[in-house]
Design a protein around this nucleic acid. Structure first.
Lengths: 197, 197
DNA sequence: ACCGCATATGAACAAGTGATCATATGACTT
DNA sequence: AAGTCATATGATCACTTGTTCATATGCGGT
């Protein structure tokens, strides 16, 4: 037998690929095994069952990639904080691995209650809370007009999400994302002009 | 045999229900037939195969429900046009049938190239074009600040889409949508304040 | 050299899949 | 009453699904 070639990771990667293409139900254990180069029964030496594979993948989706420290301090910089946030969001949107995980998320979101819970609580809520903290600081500093910080956070975040969705859809069909790549930064410009005093 | 009870429509409705819950692959011909109250073989008297059912459903998704006439004229009213648009969007978001179709769309969007094409071209592009026409008029009328109308349309539309997504997710788990129901109108207020001169 | 342990295989399973076909049923028209 | 036609059934098909199990293989430590 081959030595430590970390089959487990290969299985996860193959599963991500297949689920991102065909969904959880479309990614059969046999197809995953075939892509790794082993038989389906060998999979069960690494995972109790198919669902365990999904769980590992899901946990990767919510492994927070965003900087969460010093929000209050960094927020004082106003627009450049928003710019930083948007650029980080852009990077994640274009990262190959993260993009696949995003597809898995979108595909399974409506069919997996656990995933839904995590998306709303861990991902959405966390990002909103961070952003609303930042907007609150900006209001105190007199940088922006005053409004409900939480609502403002949603208004700022949702266009970023929508652009990410478009990027993901275009990339599946190998279409060019050039026309909307600049949208992330453009959104910051537009939004800042919308709230700056 | 029972007379004209329109089994075909029953099949479509059952299929929408099941696909909205379990995805296309999770909605087996047998399950659809069971929900209608017939055997699976009877389905094939009404549809050539399973995919034909999906095609009919997909066509319903893109049956445009939004008013498309008199955009230029109605746009002159400024904020109240945007309000109208948002409220129409809200109604569609909460309509039971449209909500199910939205779920079908989201579930299959990443797995069905035809659906992707239609979504980007027929739905997204159409809405953006209408809105950008409206914003262009508003700029000419001196109601709002000047900017790229197309981009402004996206900025206006994406939060509405995101709210719709949240509504749909909350409703699956029978959670209350009360906290975000007012977001549609709130978005119009916020956005108008962002662009009004 | 031996053993154990992790990992592989191939066969088998029960269940479910989409689809087909001969056959039956019953509401219409004639 | 007879015949037609749309629609139903039940059996059956070839195939795929997730999972299990007995068995094999070979690397690392003794």
């Amino acid at each position: 037998m081959p030595k430590q070639t970390n089959t487990k990771q290969k299985i996860i990667d193959a599963a991500i690929d297949l689920i991102a293409k065909n969904g959880y139900k479309g990614a059969s254990v046999r197809k995953i095994a075939a892509e790794v180069g082993i038989r389906e029964s060998a999979i069960y030496n690494h995972f109790k069952n198919k669902e365990e594979i999904l769980k590992v993948i899901v946990s990767q989706i919510f492994a927070t990639p965003f900087e969460t420290h010093d929000i209050e301090e960094r927020a004082k910089k106003g627009k450049s904080f928003l710019h930083q946030f948007a650029v980080a969001y852009k990077l994640v949107s274009f990262d190959r691995k993260m993009e696949k995980l995003f597809r898995v998320l979108m595909i399974e979101l409506f069919q997996n209650g656990q995933l839904r819970e995590s998306f709303l609580q861990e991902l959405h809520q966390k990002e909103i809370q961070q952003l609303s903290k930042a907007f609150f600081v900006m209001m105190q500093e007199g940088l922006i007009r005053s409004a409900d910080p939480m609502f403002m956070a949603q208004e700022f975040l949702s266009p970023l999400f929508y652009i990410r969705l478009q990027v993901s859809l275009l990339r599946i069909d190998s279409k060019s994302t050039a026309p909307i790549a600049a949208h992330f930064e453009k959104h910051v410009d537009f939004f800042w002009e919308s709230i700056a005093l």
